[in-house]
Amino acid sequence: MRIDGFQSEMQAMMMEATGTKTSPTGQQVANDFGDMLSRAINNVNGLQKTSGDLQMRFDRGDEDVSLSDVMIARNKSSVAFEATIQVRNKLVEAYKELMNMPV
C-alpha cells in the first residue's frame, strides 16, 4: 500500500470539501487536528455532564426524567469515553513508534 498516494488523495479530498485551492501547511493541519481533538474531548465532557445531571434529577424524583433516559445518556457517555481512550492509546502508540525510528 502506497502511503504517499493515499496521503495526497486524502489532502485533495479535504481541499475539495473545504473549497480551498492551495494545499494546507503542516501548521494548518496541526491546528485543525488540535481543534478537532479539543472539540471531541469537549463533546465527551458534555455527554458526561448531561449523564450526571440526568442521573441526579432522576435520583431526586424529577418526573420529567425516566430511567431509560438516564441509562441511554449514561451509555452514550460511556461509549464516547471509551472511544476517546482508544484514540489516546493509538496516538501514544504512534508517538512511540515515531520516537523509535532511526534518523
Rank of each mutant, 00 (worst) to 15 (best):
M36Q: 10
M36E: 10
L37P: 00
S38W: 04
S38R: 14
S38C: 04
S38A: 14
S38Y: 07
R39L: 11
A40S: 12
A40E: 12
A40L: 12
A40T: 09
I41M: 10
I41E: 08
I41H: 09
N43D: 11
N43M: 11
V44S: 06
N45Y: 10
N45M: 10
N45C: 05
N45W: 04
G46I: 04
L47V: 04
L47C: 01
L47P: 00
T50Y: 02
S51H: 04
S51N: 07
S51G: 15
G52E: 13
G52Q: 12
D53P: 00
D53E: 12
D53N: 10
L54M: 11
L54E: 03
M56P: 00
M56N: 11
R57N: 02
F58S: 08
D59I: 08
G61L: 05
D62P: 01
D62L: 04
D64E: 09
D64N: 10
S68Q: 13
S68R: 14
S68M: 10
D69A: 11
D69T: 09
V70L: 03
V70W: 06
V70N: 02
M71S: 10
M71K: 15
M71N: 12
M71D: 09
M71C: 01
A73C: 03
A73E: 01
A73I: 09
A73L: 03
R74K: 14
R74G: 08
N75I: 09
N75S: 10
K76P: 00
S77P: 01
S77D: 04
